[in-house]
Each structure stands twice: as structure tokens, then as C-alpha cells.
Measured scan of single mutants.
Amino acid sequence: DTLHVTQDGKHIELRGLSEEEIKLVEELLRRGRKVEEALKIIEELRK
């Protein structure tokens, strides 16, 4: 699936995420994380 995010005035499209990963990214962003940080966390969880 694809998640569309706008952060720091930039539109970012995150592709290839599972539904659970999207929920996790959304939660991390709500808690003030940056998109880059959220993606690093997803990458770690995929290992």
C-alpha cells in the first residue's frame, strides 16, 4: 500500500508498506517522529 505524508512542507509518498506498517508509521508521526526515523524503524522491524 501507499501512504501519503506531508512533512516540513514536503509531500512524501511511501510505497510498498503493509497495512500494519502504515499504521505504525502513522502512529510514529503522530508522536512527533520524522518520516526518515519512522522508515528506519520499519526497516529494522523487517529484518
Results as ranks from 00 to 15, higher is better:
residue 2 T to F: 11
residue 6 T to D: 15
residue 19 E to Q: 11
residue 19 E to W: 10
residue 9 G to A: 03
residue 20 E to A: 12
residue 28 L to H: 10
residue 22 I to K: 12
residue 45 L to Q: 12
residue 25 V to L: 06
residue 27 E to K: 07
residue 31 R to M: 14
residue 6 T to S: 09
residue 4 H to G: 06
residue 8 D to G: 06
residue 31 R to P: 05
residue 42 I to N: 00
residue 25 V to C: 07
residue 32 G to Y: 02
residue 13 E to I: 09
residue 47 K to F: 09
residue 31 R to T: 14
residue 11 H to V: 15
residue 46 R to H: 11
residue 37 E to S: 06
residue 42 I to D: 00
residue 34 K to N: 10
residue 40 K to S: 12
residue 31 R to W: 10
residue 9 G to I: 02
residue 47 K to R: 12
residue 34 K to S: 09
residue 28 L to C: 01
residue 7 Q to P: 05
residue 47 K to I: 11
residue 38 A to R: 00
residue 8 D to H: 03
residue 42 I to F: 03
residue 39 L to F: 06
residue 9 G to C: 05
residue 41 I to V: 10
residue 27 E to I: 08
residue 7 Q to C: 05
residue 16 G to A: 01
residue 38 A to I: 15
residue 22 I to G: 08
residue 40 K to L: 12
residue 20 E to C: 11
residue 15 R to D: 13
residue 44 E to N: 07
residue 5 V to H: 02
residue 5 V to T: 07
residue 11 H to G: 05
residue 21 E to A: 03
residue 33 R to D: 14
residue 42 I to M: 08
residue 44 E to V: 07
residue 28 L to D: 04
residue 4 H to Y: 00
residue 46 R to T: 05
residue 25 V to S: 01
residue 14 L to C: 09
residue 26 E to G: 08
residue 37 E to Q: 07
residue 33 R to K: 14
residue 45 L to K: 11
residue 22 I to C: 07
residue 26 E to R: 10
residue 22 I to M: 10
residue 38 A to K: 00
residue 1 D to F: 00
residue 6 T to R: 03
residue 7 Q to V: 15
residue 2 T to I: 14
residue 34 K to A: 11
residue 33 R to W: 13
residue 33 R to M: 14
residue 28 L to Y: 10
residue 24 L to W: 11
residue 16 G to S: 04
residue 31 R to K: 14
residue 43 E to Y: 05
residue 17 L to D: 00
residue 43 E to V: 05
residue 37 E to G: 06
residue 5 V to K: 02
residue 10 K to C: 12
residue 2 T to Q: 10
residue 9 G to Q: 03
residue 34 K to Y: 13
residue 7 Q to N: 05
residue 8 D to Y: 00
residue 11 H to F: 11
residue 22 I to Y: 07
residue 16 G to E: 14
residue 47 K to M: 13
residue 11 H to E: 15
residue 43 E to M: 05
residue 9 G to T: 03
residue 10 K to A: 08
residue 40 K to E: 11
residue 43 E to G: 04
residue 32 G to V: 01
residue 21 E to I: 03
residue 26 E to V: 15
residue 5 V to P: 06
residue 37 E to D: 10
residue 46 R to A: 09
residue 11 H to C: 05
residue 16 G to W: 05
residue 3 L to R: 06
residue 23 K to Q: 11
residue 22 I to F: 07
residue 12 I to F: 08
residue 34 K to E: 08
residue 1 D to E: 07
residue 12 I to G: 05
residue 23 K to L: 14
residue 34 K to G: 08
residue 30 R to C: 10
residue 15 R to Y: 15
residue 11 H to Y: 09
residue 44 E to H: 07
residue 2 T to R: 07
residue 14 L to W: 00
residue 4 H to N: 06
residue 34 K to V: 07
residue 37 E to N: 07
residue 44 E to A: 12
residue 16 G to I: 02
residue 27 E to C: 05
residue 40 K to R: 14
residue 8 D to K: 01
residue 12 I to M: 04
residue 27 E to W: 05
residue 5 V to F: 00
residue 19 E to T: 12
residue 35 V to L: 07
residue 2 T to A: 06
residue 11 H to I: 15
residue 18 S to Y: 08
residue 26 E to H: 12
residue 37 E to V: 08
residue 16 G to C: 10
residue 30 R to D: 11
residue 3 L to I: 15
residue 31 R to L: 12
residue 33 R to C: 10
residue 47 K to G: 11
residue 41 I to R: 11
residue 6 T to C: 14
residue 28 L to I: 13
residue 3 L to H: 12
residue 25 V to M: 06
residue 30 R to Q: 13
residue 38 A to H: 00
residue 23 K to W: 12
residue 2 T to S: 14
residue 8 D to S: 02
residue 1 D to Q: 03
residue 24 L to I: 13
residue 38 A to Y: 04
residue 27 E to Y: 05
residue 16 G to Y: 08
residue 39 L to C: 04
residue 27 E to M: 08
residue 14 L to S: 07
residue 26 E to I: 15
residue 36 E to C: 13
residue 45 L to A: 13
residue 7 Q to W: 00
residue 6 T to I: 14
residue 33 R to I: 15
residue 33 R to L: 14
residue 18 S to R: 05
residue 47 K to A: 13
residue 6 T to E: 11
residue 13 E to K: 03
residue 18 S to A: 10
residue 22 I to W: 04
residue 37 E to H: 09
residue 13 E to Q: 05
residue 39 L to H: 04
residue 14 L to F: 01
residue 7 Q to Y: 00
residue 31 R to G: 14
residue 9 G to D: 06
residue 24 L to K: 08
residue 7 Q to M: 01
residue 2 T to D: 09
residue 29 L to W: 01
residue 13 E to W: 03
residue 13 E to N: 04
residue 34 K to L: 15
residue 22 I to V: 11
residue 19 E to N: 13
residue 20 E to I: 10
residue 5 V to G: 06
residue 44 E to M: 08
residue 28 L to W: 09
residue 17 L to G: 01
residue 21 E to F: 03
residue 43 E to D: 12
residue 27 E to N: 11
residue 7 Q to R: 01
residue 13 E to F: 04
residue 9 G to V: 02
residue 9 G to H: 04
residue 26 E to F: 13
residue 34 K to R: 15
residue 16 G to P: 05
residue 26 E to T: 14
residue 15 R to M: 14
residue 37 E to I: 10
residue 41 I to N: 06
residue 47 K to E: 11
residue 8 D to P: 02
residue 22 I to P: 00
residue 47 K to P: 11
residue 2 T to G: 14
residue 2 T to V: 14
residue 35 V to H: 02
residue 43 E to H: 10
residue 30 R to W: 04
residue 36 E to I: 11
residue 14 L to M: 06
residue 13 E to Y: 04
residue 35 V to E: 04
residue 14 L to P: 06
residue 4 H to I: 15
residue 26 E to W: 12
residue 41 I to E: 11
residue 24 L to P: 00
residue 30 R to H: 12
residue 43 E to Q: 04
residue 40 K to F: 10
residue 18 S to T: 14
residue 8 D to Q: 03
residue 4 H to S: 04
residue 30 R to G: 10
residue 46 R to K: 08
residue 16 G to L: 02
residue 40 K to T: 14
residue 3 L to Q: 07
residue 25 V to T: 05
residue 26 E to S: 09
residue 39 L to G: 03
residue 8 D to R: 01
residue 31 R to I: 14
residue 23 K to A: 14
residue 25 V to R: 00
residue 38 A to S: 07
residue 4 H to D: 06
residue 11 H to S: 09
residue 20 E to P: 10
residue 37 E to W: 02
residue 47 K to T: 13
residue 13 E to C: 05
residue 25 V to A: 10
residue 42 I to T: 02
residue 11 H to M: 09
residue 8 D to V: 02
residue 35 V to Y: 03
residue 6 T to N: 12
residue 12 I to A: 03
residue 11 H to D: 15
residue 31 R to E: 15
residue 12 I to K: 04
residue 44 E to L: 09
residue 18 S to E: 09
residue 40 K to H: 13
residue 37 E to A: 11
residue 2 T to L: 04
residue 28 L to K: 02
residue 40 K to W: 12
residue 41 I to S: 08
residue 25 V to P: 00
residue 23 K to S: 11
residue 45 L to N: 14
residue 35 V to K: 01
residue 24 L to F: 08
residue 46 R to S: 07
residue 19 E to K: 11
residue 32 G to E: 03
residue 21 E to C: 03
residue 32 G to S: 04
residue 14 L to D: 10
residue 4 H to C: 08
residue 42 I to E: 00
residue 12 I to W: 12
residue 24 L to G: 04
residue 15 R to I: 15
residue 39 L to I: 15
residue 23 K to Y: 12
residue 34 K to M: 12
residue 11 H to Q: 07
residue 35 V to A: 09
residue 4 H to Q: 09
residue 35 V to P: 05
residue 11 H to K: 11
residue 30 R to F: 06
residue 25 V to I: 08
residue 3 L to V: 15
residue 36 E to Q: 13
residue 3 L to F: 01
residue 11 H to L: 14
residue 47 K to Y: 07
residue 18 S to N: 12
residue 11 H to N: 11
residue 21 E to M: 06
residue 18 S to K: 05
residue 10 K to N: 09
residue 29 L to R: 02
residue 14 L to Q: 06
residue 17 L to C: 01
residue 25 V to N: 01
residue 26 E to P: 00
residue 47 K to N: 13
residue 10 K to R: 07
residue 17 L to M: 07
residue 28 L to S: 11
residue 12 I to R: 01
residue 27 E to T: 10
residue 26 E to N: 07
residue 25 V to E: 00
residue 19 E to A: 15
residue 9 G to E: 04
residue 46 R to Q: 09
residue 13 E to S: 02
residue 38 A to E: 00
residue 26 E to Y: 07
residue 8 D to L: 01
residue 27 E to A: 09
residue 45 L to S: 08
residue 4 H to A: 05
residue 9 G to R: 01
residue 20 E to D: 13
residue 39 L to P: 00
residue 45 L to M: 12
residue 12 I to Q: 05
residue 16 G to T: 05
residue 41 I to C: 05
residue 4 H to L: 10
residue 3 L to P: 09
residue 36 E to V: 12
residue 39 L to T: 06
residue 32 G to I: 02
residue 15 R to E: 15
residue 46 R to C: 04
residue 2 T to N: 09
residue 12 I to T: 04
residue 37 E to T: 09
residue 9 G to S: 03
residue 1 D to I: 03
residue 3 L to A: 09
residue 30 R to S: 13
residue 43 E to F: 05
residue 12 I to Y: 09
residue 28 L to F: 11
residue 5 V to R: 01
residue 29 L to V: 07
residue 22 I to Q: 11
residue 16 G to H: 13
residue 35 V to C: 02
residue 9 G to M: 02
residue 26 E to K: 13
residue 3 L to W: 00
residue 32 G to T: 02
residue 42 I to Q: 00
residue 2 T to K: 09
residue 15 R to K: 15
residue 45 L to H: 11
residue 45 L to C: 02
residue 39 L to V: 14
residue 33 R to P: 03
residue 24 L to M: 10
residue 42 I to Y: 01
residue 6 T to M: 13
residue 12 I to L: 09
residue 4 H to K: 03
residue 31 R to N: 14
residue 30 R to K: 13
residue 41 I to G: 03
residue 24 L to R: 08
residue 9 G to K: 02
residue 4 H to R: 05
residue 10 K to L: 13
residue 45 L to E: 07
residue 1 D to K: 04
residue 10 K to Y: 06
residue 16 G to Q: 06
residue 14 L to R: 05
residue 42 I to S: 01
residue 20 E to S: 12
residue 36 E to P: 07
residue 23 K to C: 09
residue 7 Q to F: 00
residue 29 L to F: 04
residue 21 E to N: 02
residue 25 V to Y: 04
residue 11 H to R: 06
residue 21 E to H: 04
residue 34 K to I: 07
residue 29 L to A: 02
residue 14 L to N: 10
residue 34 K to C: 02
residue 46 R to L: 06
residue 2 T to C: 12
residue 1 D to C: 04
residue 39 L to R: 05
residue 32 G to F: 02
residue 13 E to H: 06
residue 35 V to G: 03
residue 4 H to M: 04
residue 35 V to I: 09
residue 16 G to F: 05
residue 34 K to T: 11
residue 21 E to P: 00
residue 2 T to E: 08
residue 36 E to R: 05
residue 10 K to F: 09
residue 14 L to H: 06
residue 23 K to E: 13
residue 25 V to W: 03
residue 38 A to F: 08
residue 13 E to G: 02
residue 43 E to A: 04
residue 30 R to N: 12
residue 37 E to L: 07
residue 46 R to V: 07
residue 6 T to A: 06
residue 19 E to P: 13
residue 27 E to D: 14
residue 35 V to D: 01
residue 20 E to Q: 10
residue 31 R to F: 10
residue 38 A to W: 03
residue 4 H to W: 01
residue 42 I to K: 00
residue 35 V to W: 02
residue 24 L to N: 06
residue 8 D to W: 00
residue 26 E to A: 08
residue 26 E to L: 15
